[in-house]
């Protein structure tokens, strides 16, 4: 009897970790898909972090002012798209350095969010705590309690599948959406072509700049949702620097997934799982090792990405024309 309780408990612990993995991975997935859109079109996008931070702030600020999570989400998307267009202006129209432009957006976002936040709410850069109505709330699926009481399988339904907010589902749908757009639509074909051989697209009479701008707009929408998720769904308000490098982890996940939606999704889930495990192991003594090396577990995504990029395990090839501004032949 005692033994059985132990197993059930372990199973529940495992399921809770999987549940946490999904929650942590959601912004990563949205940002990684955004990254795929930008980078497949040939634009290096390290500004995922800044776009997410700015939209997290915009979502929380507008949600608290209008008492509507949806208004927050829409504003977040708008802000993120605007930053994407700024990145486009720098890297497509003015043919500037894409890495520098992205970095500038990230630093700008750090400064702007706190500056505006202090001026608006006078709480040291935070937004007020959001009430239930101002947030995206968990959606309990029907019969969660009844089915949840079934042994073994029940808890999967109750803990892992039920109880997520709408943006978690949107993130998963975004993966299908990205895969569909890239492989099944004319725009997707053009998008991939513009990142590999822009001159081919140009000679076919399709505007390289327009295609790239469109890609950046889609990326902006996805990043905006990721930011809104952080401050109005996962959290209950904006906290300064709340993205804390998640944009870079998403970038790493995208590379780890070799610029493919499915691979990126798996990488996001893996990185999310590592984070979920790390937070569960905080201060826990592991047999043989002693106190769990949480900091080192959290560093694994970066290390794995470096190893993969170096071609020690498989090979990740970026789109061929990435980082190069396109100049029309005369």
């Amino acid at each position: 009897m005692q033994e059985e309780g132990g197993v059930a408990d372990l199973w529940l612990q495992f399921l809770l970790t999987i549940d946490a993995t999904l929650r942590v991975a959601t912004p990563l997935i949205l940002c990684a898909m955004a990254g795929i859109f930008s980078e497949k079109s040939g634009i290096i996008d390290i500004s995922l972090e800044g776009k997410m931070l700015m939209s997290a702030f915009a979502a929380a600020a507008v949600a608290t002012l209008t008492s509507s999570a949806l208004a927050g989400l829409v504003t977040a998307i708008g802000v993120s798209v605007l930053l994407g267009l700024l990145h486009g202006l720098a890297s497509i129209t003015l043919r500037g350095n894409q890495v520098i432009s992205g970095l500038a957006i990230n630093i700008l976002a750090s400064g702007l969010t706190v500056t505006i936040g202090i001026a608006m709410f006078k709480q040291g850069g935070q937004t007020p705590n959001l009430s239930r109505a101002e947030r995206f709330r968990p959606i309990e699926l029907p019969f969660a309690e009844q089915i949840g009481n079934l042994p073994l399988i029940g808890p999967i339904y109750r803990e892992v599948i039920s109880g997520h907010n709408i943006l978690v589902w949107v993130a998963l749908a975004a993966v299908l959406f990205t895969a569909f757009i890239l492989t099944r639509t004319r725009f997707g074909l053009r998008l991939r072509a513009v990142g590999e051989k822009p001159e081919a697209l140009d000679s076919a009479g399709v505007s390289v700049a327009k295609t790239r701008y469109l890609a950046l707009i889609v990326a902006g929408v996805l990043c905006g949702m990721a930011g809104a998720y952080l401050s109005t769904a996962h959290g209950s308000g904006f906290v300064r620097e709340m993205t804390a490098g998640k944009g870079y982890i998403a970038l790493a996940a995208m590379i780890f997934g070799k610029w493919q939606p499915r691979g990126a999704l798996l990488a996001c889930l893996l990185f999310g799982f590592l984070e979920a495990v790390a937070s569960r192991l905080q201060g826990v003594d592991v047999p043989l090792i002693g106190e769990a090396p949480v900091d080192l577990i959290l560093a694994l995504p970066y290390l794995l990405t470096v190893i993969l990029l170096a071609g020690f395990v498989g090979k990740a090839m970026p789109p061929r024309a990435i980082g190069e501004p396109y100049v029309k032949e005369r």
Binding site: A104, L108, G111
Partner: peptide, 16 residues
Amino acid sequence: LLIQGLIILFSGGLAY
């Protein structure tokens, strides 16, 4: 930080 970001933007990304 804002000024710094803008300087990087103007002198790097928007250099031209």
